[in-house]
Deep mutational scan, measured.
Amino acid sequence: MWEAGIQHIELEKGSKGLGFSILDYQDPIDPASTVIIIRSLVPGGIAEKDGRLLPGDRLMFVNDVNLENSSLEEAVEALKGAPSGTVRIGVAKPLP
């Protein structure tokens, strides 16, 4: 389960991407759907250096692409398709 509020994070995407990987996970509230979760951070990558994204965070959007009900493929496309420079990411943090 995740917090209702969405944290807005801006990262600078370079030639090596944003520095994290994702996975799809069965939604605990709606078993028929999936949620997109941050799986891991690349050591020394943009996301790890920034410090705000953590494994277990739920990915909600990338720039103007809503990922609340997306497939893993759609989420990967949104991340890979984001141009270099500032990328806006929304995440919901896990409940304590």
Rank of each mutant, 00 (worst) to 15 (best):
M1C: 03
M1E: 07
M1R: 03
M1W: 03
M1D: 08
W2S: 12
W2P: 02
W2L: 04
E3A: 05
E3R: 04
E3K: 13
E3D: 08
E3V: 05
A4S: 13
G5C: 03
G5H: 07
G5A: 07
G5R: 08
I6F: 09
I6W: 12
I6L: 05
I6G: 03
I6A: 05
I6H: 06
I6V: 12
I6D: 03
I6M: 09
Q7S: 07
Q7P: 02
Q7H: 14
Q7D: 11
Q7N: 14
Q7I: 15
Q7C: 12
Q7K: 12
H8L: 12
H8I: 12
H8W: 05
H8T: 12
H8K: 12
H8N: 12
E10P: 08
E10F: 09
E10H: 06
E10G: 06
E10K: 11
E10N: 12
E10Q: 12
L11E: 00
L11R: 01
E12Q: 09
E12W: 07
K13C: 08
K13V: 09
K13S: 12
K13A: 12
G14C: 13
G14H: 14
G14A: 06
S15A: 05
S15K: 14
S15I: 08
S15W: 05
K16V: 08
G17C: 08
L18A: 03
L18Y: 04
L18P: 03
L18F: 06
G19D: 05
G19Q: 04
G19N: 01
G19A: 02
F20I: 08
F20E: 00
F20S: 00
S21V: 06
S21D: 15
S21E: 07
S21G: 10
I22W: 02
I22S: 02
I22V: 15
L23Q: 15
L23P: 00
L23D: 13
L23T: 15
D24E: 06
D24L: 04
D24I: 02
Y25F: 07
Q26M: 05
Q26G: 10
Q26V: 08
Q26Y: 07
Q26W: 07
D27T: 11
D27K: 06
D27A: 08
D27Q: 11
P28I: 10
P28G: 12
P28K: 14
I29Q: 12
I29G: 15
I29Y: 11
I29R: 13
I29S: 11
I29V: 13
D30H: 07
D30V: 10
D30S: 09
D30Y: 11
P31D: 10
P31L: 05
P31M: 08
P31Q: 10
P31S: 13
P31T: 09
A32S: 13
A32V: 14
A32K: 09
A32I: 13
A32C: 14
A32Q: 05
S33I: 06
S33C: 12
S33H: 12
S33E: 08
T34M: 09
T34D: 08
V35F: 09
V35E: 13
V35I: 15
V35D: 09
V35R: 15
I36L: 07
I36Q: 04
I36C: 08
I36D: 01
I37M: 14
I37P: 00
I37K: 15
I37E: 15
I37C: 14
I38L: 06
I38E: 01
I38Y: 00
I38A: 03
I38F: 02
R39W: 03
R39P: 03
R39A: 04
R39Y: 04
R39E: 07
R39N: 15
R39K: 14
R39F: 03
S40K: 13
S40R: 07
S40Q: 14
L41R: 04
L41T: 07
L41C: 07
L41K: 02
L41N: 02
L41F: 04
L41D: 00
V42Q: 12
V42R: 11
V42A: 14
V42D: 13
P43T: 14
P43L: 05
P43N: 10
G44P: 00
G45N: 02
G45S: 14
G45P: 00
G45V: 02
I46M: 12
I46R: 08
I46L: 09
A47R: 01
A47K: 01
E48Q: 10
K49A: 11
K49M: 08
K49N: 14
K49E: 15
K49F: 06
K49W: 03
K49R: 11
K49P: 01
D50Q: 06
D50R: 02
D50T: 09
D50K: 03
G51P: 02
G51Q: 07
G51D: 03
G51V: 01
L53F: 04
L53I: 15
L53K: 01
L53A: 10
L54P: 00
L54F: 12
L54I: 12
P55W: 02
P55V: 11
P55K: 15
P55A: 15
G56L: 03
G56K: 12
G56W: 05
G56I: 00
G56F: 05
G56C: 03
G56N: 10
D57I: 02
D57M: 15
D57W: 04
D57V: 06
R58S: 02
R58V: 02
R58G: 02
R58L: 02
R58K: 11
R58I: 02
M60Y: 04
M60H: 05
M60F: 08
F61N: 05
F61E: 10
F61C: 11
F61D: 04
F61Q: 09
F61V: 11
V62K: 01
V62G: 00
V62W: 02
V62D: 01
V62I: 10
N63E: 12
N63T: 00
N63L: 00
N63Q: 05
N63Y: 00
N63R: 02
D64P: 01
D64C: 10
D64T: 08
V65I: 08
V65P: 00
V65C: 12
V65G: 03
V65Y: 08
V65L: 11
N66Q: 15
N66S: 14
N66V: 08
N66Y: 05
N66D: 09
L67F: 08
L67R: 01
L67Q: 02
E68R: 07
E68Q: 07
E68A: 13
E68V: 10
N69S: 11
N69W: 07
N69L: 10
N69G: 13
N69A: 13
N69C: 14
S70Y: 13
S70K: 14
S70G: 13
S70C: 13
S71Q: 11
S71F: 07
S71E: 08
S71T: 12
L72C: 13
E73V: 06
E73D: 14
E73L: 09
E74D: 15
A75F: 02
A75W: 02
A75K: 01
A75L: 01
A75E: 00
V76F: 13
V76P: 00
V76W: 13
V76T: 09
E77R: 12
E77I: 11
E77C: 10
E77V: 11
A78K: 07
A78Y: 05
A78R: 05
A78F: 06
L79S: 01
L79A: 02
L79M: 12
L79R: 00
K80Q: 07
K80H: 09
G81E: 14
G81Y: 11
G81A: 15
P83A: 10
P83F: 03
P83Q: 05
P83T: 08
S84L: 14
S84G: 14
S84Y: 07
G85S: 06
G85H: 04
G85V: 02
G85F: 02
G85N: 07
T86C: 12
T86V: 13
T86I: 10
V87I: 12
V87L: 09
V87R: 01
V87W: 02
V87N: 06
R88G: 07
R88H: 13
R88A: 06
I89Y: 02
I89V: 09
G90I: 03
G90K: 04
G90V: 03
G90T: 06
G90C: 03
G90L: 02
A92H: 12
A92C: 14
K93V: 03
K93A: 04
L95E: 15
L95W: 06
L95Q: 12
L95H: 06
P96I: 03
P96G: 15
P96C: 07
